[in-house]
Nucleic acid binder design. Structure first.
Lengths: 268, 268
DNA sequence: CGTTAGGTTGAGCAATATCAAATTCGGTGG
DNA sequence: CCACCGAATTTGATATTGCTCAACCTAACG
């Protein structure tokens, strides 16, 4: 797997219309107050030619060199580690608006594989690294990227908790709530309903269970009327119950301050 | 737990002699080439009055504000998350030379509890945050701290893999190898033998198992002649077998470069 | 020399994995 | 529109891993 032309340059990005527009501006302006100039930088990035990827292709390979960081514009990807036999573990899901391959060091090697779960489009964004080195120029952006990175770290820790100490039911409930949280902060979830374009096998690799057991647990959630899951769309029918079951808590990264974007959306 | 005077200021730090001396210089000079000035900064930090902590006290509380970052000088701590009932998960172990409470954002809140596993000494090191904001002044230090942070991230990912997809035996083998790797890079392990100052219950919380099962797995490792574990000291009698069992791989963070400290110690 | 925390062992059980066989679903070609 | 195909999902039966409960043991310590 993974030979040949996986990456296809698009000359135009005609479809980048409806839900894609201003994805980055929306996301990062919510994390931190941005100047008009900073918003302009994000729009510039968004307008860039997209790289297209087929599902199941590898965007990054563990221990291989990373070039410029990228933003996911559409589609889902996963950060993956593998064991010698066929076992694999998904470390985290990458959604539209997320950064791929940011590393703050010289000649960085990727710490994980990154695999497209669906067809994807990405844009290169060397600006992220630049903002990071040269904070003064775009302080708002720098702060927003910091917050985004910290959120990633938070979710990685949540993943550890899930896998180490939660039951199958709890893990899946927590994972669903987390997805809903992340998607809705990007305007990609409405009323607890959002696309879930992954197979149950992928879900199993994310929550550290077998496919069969994932399937049975989903059945149970359906029987209990807590979710509806059909044709790649998930609806959380009883988010309160799921949140309680999974003990999901949204990230609390910074204490409220006079400067920060306290127009921050409060979920639930 | 955790009331009263947990933090005790020491007026002198008389015991800071033998294995403690130059801990920071050794560690970070191994990660990146440092100038004499930069080494001086580290020595200055090391010489600072230590804060002393009793075992089982909390150095940081999840969701509470963080002040200046600290270095662990002696003793072990753990980053911990808890569930509503008594379940808890250790996210990572903090060893001498590690940083506690570094956060690159305004008014940061701690993402996890930090609990002392043994009596500890720490020093405050606002220099870490400064180096981070003002990279030009101490580029070597800034790069070294970046590498250290990336290593932390790497180990967190290893933790996810362990918990999600490895068996009890594999988890413990992997965890032991990781500890040996980290300790020996600080000169705290000799010939695969090092202090392991934690109860089996703590070990259980680290690897996501029950105490009983941890105990049985340790027995098995002993029977097989792979470890010796007595009175708080662990000896890896057959590191190759353990490395293979746990599929332990040391972190590969950067491709070799002409600048970086390629006097980097190669382990095993 | 009693107390206690930590370690060890046994027995039974619950959660989850594995294996194998349907069944359904989303295309795709006719 | 229909038949068919492969992938994904579902279900059943059984095996395994790791958990819980409970007792007992041991060493350190006052």
């Amino acid at each position: 797997m993974g030979t040949g032309v996986e990456k296809v340059m698009l000359t135009t990005s005609r479809n980048g219309a409806a839900p894609l527009a201003d994805l980055l501006v929306n996301r990062f302006n919510r994390l931190e107050v941005l100047t008009e100039h900073e918003r302009g930088v994000l729009r510039l990035i968004e307008a860039r030619p997209k790289q297209a990827w087929r599902a199941d292709t590898r965007l990054l390979t563990e221990r291989s060199e990373i070039r410029a960081p990228q933003f996911v514009m559409t589609g889902w990807a996963a950060r993956v580690r593998e064991l010698g036999d066929s076992r694999r573990q998904i470390l985290g899901i990458l959604l539209p608006g997320d950064v791929i391959g940011l590393a703050m060091r010289a000649r960085p090697l990727a710490l994980t594989h990154v695999v497209a779960l669906t067809p994807m489009r990405t844009v290169e964004a060397p600006e992220i690294a630049v903002a990071w080195r040269d904070r003064e120029r775009v302080p708002g952006l720098a702060a927003a990227f910091d917050l985004a990175a910290t959120e990633d770290e938070f979710f990685m820790m949540a993943q550890v908790m899930r896998l180490g100490r939660q039951t199958a039911y709890e893990r899946i409930a927590h994972w669903f709530m987390e997805l809903e949280y992340r998607l809705s902060s990007r305007g990609l979830s409405t009323n607890g309903s959002f696309p879930l374009p992954v197979t149950q096998e992928t879900l199993a690799d994310a929550v550290g269970l077998s496919v069969v057991h994932v399937n049975r647990t989903l059945q149970q959630m359906r029987r209990e009327g807590r979710i509806e899951l059909t044709r790649g769309r998930l609806s959380l029918l009883d988010p309160d119950a799921l949140r309680a079951a999974g003990e999901f808590h949204p990230p609390a990264l910074s204490a409220p301050g006079q400067l920060a974007a306290e127009a921050r959306v409060v979920h639930h």
